[in-house]
Each structure stands twice: as structure tokens, then as C-alpha cells.
């Protein structure tokens, strides 16, 4: 392929992303430092200076970190169990894609009735005499965490499954043959091979949880413990019609997310990075 051909073929995509991603991004930076009133950093000062606004950072991490950790902690042993395939694997994985596909808005709708005071969940627990009165599940931090997990867990699980099934079973057999027990094989052979996948799954699940918006509004306490960064940014831009302040908060959000992903991948780079296949070499 000549340089000219390559350029022509890449041009539409590059131009589009320059126009619809890079430019808005730069424009957002510009907007954020040209507030309606005050100096260039007034938006940032207002955000970090206001305790209510600043709390949205902590609220977001308080949801995203446990969600990502729990999802990965559950996904790793389950994916390990399925490493050699399972009967009905295709049906199981297809069912797992369902909540991912339906997305947080639908999940919120379903949870609103199901976990409500007269919903099937409370009703079942009551008739089993596990509880005396309906438990308040909705409009709490826990409901949002649960909603995130419903879409993020299958996501993490399928990602881990992709990694685990890429590990050559011969390596495991070799470890057994050399006298390693199951736990040793997992700890010394499989886990190191899975580690880069774990880091990636954690980062991507974190991204999914960090952007939480509809479920935080519909199922949480959007004025309190689940007032996350995306709510703060959205309210500034669309309820106070201050796109400048909204852009500033959105950029704080982007910077924090990139920082955490950067950290995860920096740690990941220190992990084992070699072939996951046996054979010559």
C-alpha cells in the first residue's frame, strides 16, 4: 500500500474523530477555563471549593472501586472453573450478555418494582420468614451498587473467560506432572498468566462503573450518597445551563478515570508478560 492510499483510506475516520472528538475535547477545555464569571480557574475552584460538589468524587469512587473489585473477584474463580469449557457454555454465556445488552436504564426499571416494598424479592423473603417487614432496598447506595454489578459482572466474567480459554491446557498438565497440586498450579501457573487479563478486566469494569448515571439517579440518592460525577456534570450543563462548569466537571471526571486506568496498566506492565502457550521455545 502506498502512503497516499493509506492516507486516503484513513482520512474519513481521522477527519471525523478530529471534528467530533478531538475538537469538542479541546473546546471543552477552552469552555472550562472561560467561565461566566471569574478567572480562568473559577470553575475548578468552585467545584473543589464546594463540599457538596467535591463529595461527588468520593461518591463515584465509593461505587466504582468496590463494584470493579467485586466483579473481578467473582469472575476470576468462575472463569477458572470454566477454563476447559462446560456443557451448555454457549447458552450460559449468551444469557450473560442479556443484562449487558439491555443496559442500565432497563435494569433500573426492572429493579424498581422487583426490589420495591411489594415486589417479588421482599415478598419472597417475607414468606420464607427471613424478614418481618419489607426491607428498604431502593433509593440507597446498595441499590446502585447492585445495578452496576448486574451489568458489570457479566462483562468482567466474559472478559476473563476470553483470557482464560486462551491459556494452553498443556501448561497446567505440565505443572501437574511436575508434582504441583491444584492450588499450587493455580497460584504459580494460571494466576500469573491470568494477571494481565485481570488488570484489563478491572480497568474496563471500572470504566463502566465510573460513568454510572441513569441508575444513580433512578435507584440511588441523587442528592446524597450517589450523587456521582456524571450527575454533577450533567446538572451543571443541563439544569443550570452552564456548559462551561459542566465541561470542567466532565474533564475532572475524565482526568480521574485516565489516572486510575494509567495506574492499573502501569502495575500491569510489571506483571508477567509472556506466551500463554506451551510448546517449543
Amino acid at each position: 500500500m502506498s502512503a497516499r492510499q493509506g492516507l486516503v483510506l484513513s482520512l474519513p475516520a481521522v477527519l471525523f474523530l478530529a471534528l467530533a472528538f478531538v475538537y469538542p475535547f479541546g473546546y471543552g477545555l477552552f469552555l472550562s477555563v472561560t467561565p461566566r464569571t471569574g478567572g480562568p480557574l473559577a470553575n475548578y475552584a468552585a467545584f473543589f471549593g464546594d463540599e457538596f460538589q467535591r463529595a461527588s468524587i468520593g461518591n463515584t469512587f465509593a461505587l466504582a472501586l468496590p463494584a470493579a473489585l467485586l466483579c473481578v473477584l467473582l469472575a476470576v474463580p468462575l472463569a477458572y472453573r470454566m477454563r476447559h469449557g462446560l456443557r451448555g457454555e454457549r447458552v450460559l454465556t449468551a444469557l450473560l450478555v442479556v443484562p449487558v445488552t439491555l443496559g442500565p436504564v432497563f435494569i433500573a426499571d426492572a429493579m424498581l418494582f422487583y426490589f420495591g416494598p411489594v415486589g417479588w424479592f421482599n415478598r419472597t423473603l417475607e414468606s420464607l420468614h427471613l424478614i418481618d417487614a419489607p426491607v428498604r432496598l431502593l433509593h440507597t447506595y446498595g441499590a446502585v451498587l447492585l445495578a452496576i454489578m448486574l451489568t458489570a459482572f457479566p462483562f468482567a466474567f466474559l472478559l476473563m473467560l476470553g483470557y482464560v480459554s486462551g491459556i494452553d491446557p498443556a501448561l497446567e498438565r505440565a505443572a501437574h506432572m511436575l508434582g504441583a497440586g491444584r492450588w499450587q498450579t493455580f497460584r504459580r501457573v494460571l494466576l500469573p498468566l491470568m494477571a494481565p487479563g485481570i488488570a484489563t478486566a478491572f480497568a474496563l469494569t471500572f470504566v463502566l462503573a465510573f460513568g454510572v448515571f441513569p441508575s444513580a439517579v433512578l435507584l440511588g440518592e441523587p442528592g446524597g450518597s450517589t450523587r456521582v460525577l456524571s450527575i454533577a456534570a450533567f446538572q451543571a450543563a443541563y439544569e443550570r445551563f452552564d456548559f462551561s462548569a459542566g465541561s470542567a466537571i466532565a474533564l475532572v471526571m475524565g482526568a480521574l478515570q485516565l489516572a486510575l486506568i494509567g495506574l492499573v496498566f502501569a502495575l500491569r506492565a510489571r506483571l508477567y508478560a509472556g506466551p500463554a502457550r506451551g510448546g517449543k521455545g
Binding site: 475535547f25 471543552g28 460513568g211 450533567f234 456548559f243 466532565a250 471526571m253 475524565g254 485516565l258
Partner: peptide, 17 residues
């Protein structure tokens, strides 16, 4: 990058445009 950024970071300025 567009896949690593929270959609709101570019979405809000793009929407304002």
C-alpha cells in the same frame, strides 16, 4: 481514546456545539 474517556467528557462540549 474515545473508548477510554467517559462519554460526558466529550459529549457535553460536543452537545453544546
Amino acid at each position: 481514546l474515545p473508548m477510554l474517556m467517559p462519554p460526558l467528557t466529550y459529549g457535553i462540549p460536543l452537545a453544546s456545539q
